[in-house]
Design a protein around this nucleic acid. Structure first.
Length: 369
DNA sequence: CAGGCGTGGTA
DNA sequence: TTACCAAGCCT
């Protein structure tokens, strides 16, 4: 940082004045206690404000205090998080609530270092809570900070690399006001969200345009430097809709990994159907699935394809293509070997299901009639 | 450190 | 349809 003290102060003044005049009215900005700030920050991880707002409102209604959150059961917790994604956030949220209530006797730690010991709170979230709720002078380095300060200071470090975080934190720290770092951090987020956007930034409206090195050189779009991730790996699955319109079989996913503990139709992957991964599967898996279900679940079913297109669903690292199959479940079938549950239509809404399951159900309802 | 871990919006 | 992005954390 080669700015003079005078320039730093002028930057702070212009930046914070802009924030005072232009800050967004967001639900969590009506509170200043750590519970509300924390909840909003966790929900906002990799998630846009527009998506978070209704979840935030509903979640607070369900769990008005951190004690309510600490005491709830996982089914209720997941139902409140259903559809928001990155579900380990919900589990960590409750773990941290329990940590606060038991290890800390309900009193929040106020430093970033202590906050980072709580489940689900990393360097960004710790700095955000410490600065916004406790006025600690900590730089909250998130995607917005990367973009805003990479442009302002022409920082060329690759923001996809973990070690780059420290470079930005060190560059931003001298710019923070002694008091009011929370406003500074939130100003960074608002600027990044509304003016200093990834594509087509509104530099002509920018309150700190005169300090921006990238703007001076017309290189805004070259920042931040970020190596791209590999594209999602394709995975081919079959979804089994077993039952009738009144009730059908559902399976809870394992407690670890993708969509942990959420409920879906039984899913069978190509790998589950073939011993040799070099074998090529037929277009119609009906016979293989019938055999698989007989062996694995001890269920004697007549499995047939559902007419219509496959459902596709893309995660960050996987692209699922799912063909739908269906079968009637004969009365009094023994489900002892099926690791799941026969769910009545009336009870279906009690289960926390991922978006891909909602897509599957919707497609089945449409294509099976 | 690299890679796992969701979803919805935009170009 | 593909590519990329949005207030990251954990292992």
């Amino acid at each position: 940082m080669n700015w003079t003290t005078k320039k730093q102060q002028a930057f702070q003044r212009d930046f914070l004045n802009w924030y005072q005049q232009n800050q967004r009215d967001l639900p969590w900005r009506h509170f200043h206690d750590p519970y509300h700030i924390w909840l909003s920050e966790i929900m906002l991880q990799q998630t846009q404000v527009h998506t978070v707002i209704p979840y935030y409102q509903r979640f607070l209604k369900a769990f008005p205090t951190i004690a309510d959150l600490a005491a709830t059961d996982e089914a209720t917790l997941f139902k409140a998080w259903e559809g928001l994604g990155y579900y380990s956030r919900a589990r960590n949220l409750q773990r941290a609530a329990q940590q606060i209530c038991t290890d800390y006797q309900g009193v929040w730690p106020q430093t970033a270092t202590e906050l980072e010991k709580l489940a689900g709170i990393g360097p960004y979230t710790a700095a955000a809570i410490a600065s916004i709720a406790f006025d600690a002078p900590e730089p909250a380095v998130d995607g917005n900070a990367y973009r805003v300060f990479a442009r302002l200071l022409q920082i060329k470090a690759d923001v996809a690399q973990p070690k780059t975080r420290g470079i930005f934190a060190a560059a931003i720290r001298p710019l923070l006001p002694t008091t009011g770092a929370g406003d500074f951090n939130q100003a960074t987020m608002d600027l990044g969200a509304t003016i200093c956007t990834p594509k087509d930034p509104a530099c002509l409206l920018c309150p700190v345009q005169q300090y921006c090195q990238a703007y001076q050189t017309g290189t805004q779009l070259d920042y931040p430097v970020k190596t791209k991730k590999p594209k999602p790996k394709p995975v081919h699955l079959a979804a089994l809709v077993i039952g009738d319109p009144q009730q059908w079989l559902m399976q809870q996913r394992p407690g670890q990994g993708l969509l942990a503990n959420l409920w879906t139709y039984p899913l069978v992957s190509a790998a589950d159907l073939q011993s040799d991964e070099n074998d090529k599967l037929p277009a119609d898996w009906s016979a293989l699935l019938t055999q698989y279900v007989a062996q694995t679940y001890q269920l004697d079913l007549n499995i047939t394809p559902v007419k219509g297109r496959a459902v596709t669903h893309t995660f960050t690292h996987l692209k699922w293509t799912i063909d739908l199959y269906q079968a009637k479940l004969p009365a009094k079938t023994d489900l002892a070997f099926f690791p799941g549950q026969l769910v009545a239509a009336a009870d279906y809404d009690q289960l926390a299901v991922p978006t891909v399951q909602k897509k599957l159900q919707q497609r089945f309802l449409k294509d099976s009639k």
